[in-house]
Design a protein around this nucleic acid. Structure first.
Lengths: 244, 244
DNA sequence: CGTGACTTTGACAAATGTCAAAGCATGTGG
DNA sequence: CCACATGCTTTGACATTTGTCAAAGTCACG
């Protein structure tokens, strides 16, 4: 099967991503060495290793996580289409977290070795890479504030709003809900809550008809009330980011 | 008073920072538009604003924080000499957190407008900037795991080890301890604990003769035991980063 | 002195975690 | 087609951690 041409990349035109000049698109086409399909459960990057390849998620979802000495797992964030994977491997010695596919995924593949070429000959793209890193930094800072200052139900609500909005921006809404192909344990590990407590919190949102998450689908029934709990302004603007 | 020349910058030679070519040093000297001294308590960057200037901390300490709707504050991290301030303002529309000086500080000042020149004409420096962003991302991911998975005493121990090591790497050790010019409330806000609980946790570490923090000085009495609680290998290597 | 900012303590309340078991799909081998 | 094993979700009872409130202690400073 032919890989998707960057030129006609369906992600590129979503308003979530910064616009891209035509010559940048041509360069990306060159920079891209191929496409990869992986099955759910595949480990894409390993904490502590150095990866020869970098990716951009095209389809499917995954998660980034760290494993602690005592075996606990912290999910750093969820990987959705448009996310760049492997920046740390690209510029630091090695990855500081692992990345795993939660569903089957399709990824754009880049070569780590040509990253330097990007910096030397395509300053706009280098800038965009830094921009992506800064957006990532922002999102992690926000997550930190969520774990540090918010209660269980607030954290779940926040996660739902974030994921719901991102899916909508990607036009992933089909029917009543958006896809959320994770386990409750994944969400628990992301929010720093126990599985049991997460489960009971989900029940509360269900019982109050605010949001329902089952069978890999998230249905937000009252966006307003969800935002209220999540301490978010329902009319705020999304963060624009470049697509690598 | 004459500003410090980059050439003789005392930070540059610390093994914590990546080595820098001579011509890069010359460029940085140009890039640098001046030096700034601020008093303790000064707000250097405001969440939501765009800053015309970027900084590198030379002396003194500060903190980055976010304020939530309900007034809670999350301290994102502590700012120590060598930290770059304002990357988000440089590449995104605006800062996503505030930065405040906890002590008097001296900062290297750069002009946001010349950042683009850096990307166009100094790819190594552009790479370093991305590298810094990646290191920051790593540290935030680690913080996330700390807040999400560790108990109160473990969090405090982690923070102490991190800060102690960083101060040592900067040769800030004088006498029995390292400077830690923050309030208990700052640490509490960084670790997602209440002030009272933080205070009681500090007492535990004191009573067990593991670490004592008073009058802005942190004295680590048993690095081994502290690392044990912090779930850290006491022999691990520090992360090297570029100095901007 | 008296005031304000910070730290320390004790008593009590609330949120969250742990354990254990049951429920419920789904897939597989007999 | 059934029986059973597996992985995930749901529940209830109970334990523990952490937060909240209120007050007192300490220290620097005008």
């Amino acid at each position: 099967m032919m890989p998707v041409k960057c030129e006609i990349c369906p992600l590129r035109k979503k308003p979530l991503f910064a616009e891209m000049d035509d010559d940048i698109v041509r360069f990306m086409q060159e920079f891209k060495v191929g496409e990869m399909k992986v099955k759910a459960g595949t480990t894409l990057m390993m904490e502590g290793s150095n990866a020869p390849q970098l990716y951009t998620a095209l389809e499917g979802m995954g998660l980034r996580y760290k494993t602690l000495i005592d075996g606990d797992r912290q999910v750093i964030n969820f990987v959705l289409p448009g996310d760049f994977i492997g920046l740390q491997a690209g510029v630091m010695r090695e990855m500081q977290h692992s990345v795993e596919a939660s569903t089957d995924m399709i990824l754009c593949v880049f070569d780590r070795k040509t990253l330097w070429d990007l910096f030397q000959n395509h300053p706009e793209r280098a800038f965009d890479l830094t921009w992506v890193a800064a957006v990532e930094e922002h999102l992690l800072g926000e997550s930190l504030a969520i774990l540090g200052q918010m209660s269980g139900i607030e954290r779940v609500a926040r996660a739902f709003v974030r994921l719901h909005d991102r899916c909508e921006a990607l036009d992933l809404k089909h029917g009543a809900g958006v896809p959320l192909p994770f386990k409750q344990q994944d969400l628990a590990d992301a929010l720093g809550l126990s599985l049991v407590h997460t489960n009971k919190t989900l029940k509360k949102l269900r019982d109050q008809s605010i949001a329902k998450w089952a069978n890999g689908k998230l249905e937000v029934m009252s966006y307003t009330r969800l935002c209220e709990i999540a301490q978010l302004d329902p009319t705020r603007d999304p963060i624009i980011r470049p697509l690598i």
